[in-house]
Design a protein around this nucleic acid. Sequence first.
DNA 1: TTGCTCATGTAAGAATTCTGACATAGAATT
DNA 2: AATTCTATGTCAGAATTCTTACATGAGCAA
Lengths: 141, 141
Amino acid sequence: MSNSEVQVGYLVKQAQSLLRLRMESALRPHSLTVSQYSCLHRLRREPGISAAGLARATFMTRQSMNSMLQQLLDRGLVERPARPDSGRALPTALTAAGTDLLSAAQAEVDRVEESMLSGLSQSDLIALTRGLNACVKALEG
Amino acid sequence: MSNSEVQVGYLVKQAQSLLRLRMESALRPHSLTVSQYSCLHRLRREPGISAAGLARATFMTRQSMNSMLQQLLDRGLVERPARPDSGRALPTALTAAGTDLLSAAQAEVDRVEESMLSGLSQSDLIALTRGLNACVKALEG
DNA sequence: TTGCTCATGTAAGAATTCTGACATAGAATT
DNA sequence: AATTCTATGTCAGAATTCTTACATGAGCAA
């Protein structure tokens, strides 16, 4: 209760920064950055997504995403066709190695998120989720 | 209500990203980045703070903060003594120009935060703040 | 005093991400 | 059919931030 004047925007930034720090620690043994993990995570959820779509889902530019995808390609964690079957979008997907690495990494990341929420009751968690969703919706509009 | 499986960590990141985007738009006319704004904001709250302390408060490294402070010094928005009076820390403070610019910028940033919270009731806001504080506390521990 | 630890400032370089720009493919419009 | 619009991929370069490393000043303990 150091100071109740703290603004919500600052709290969001603080929580996100700390969460990122903990995730980095958890992911370092797997040689993954948070951005790379987010990318792999999204790829499992939405196989065949384009780099531009991936960028939107992970809050980066498509230029940054493409340079990151190149690294993941080099490591054999993801795969893309050489040429698009239609349009310009190159559908990207996880390889078997990527799927395995993601599973191992997610186990640890999930523990980080669990610990973050450890002080919250069921109803607290619902209220937090509702509040954040309302913020997102308002900022999008 | 697209998907209730979304994790809280992702929501935090999404909210923070969108908030940053809106803040960037609001600050661009003032030629300030979000990081610079955060720095000025903290300086008003804690005049005489060191660059390292400023870095901690704004979630950056002290190296990044020092290079940012150099820009703000060049623009005459902040001031630091040439030599420390004691120890190594150089106490930093806002100039009159920095105070004025901050006031003008904050008016617009406050509107962004207001709009973010526009869909929340009083009790929703309290619950959101409580939830975020609990997350921060758990991640710090 | 001496040595140890910690915090701060700083320098050099790498890595990441972004901005601006351009080409291309499909969709939409006229 | 021709044009315009939108989305995607890509290139080049800049800007930001981080990593690693080192020097210095203060506090503390032996």
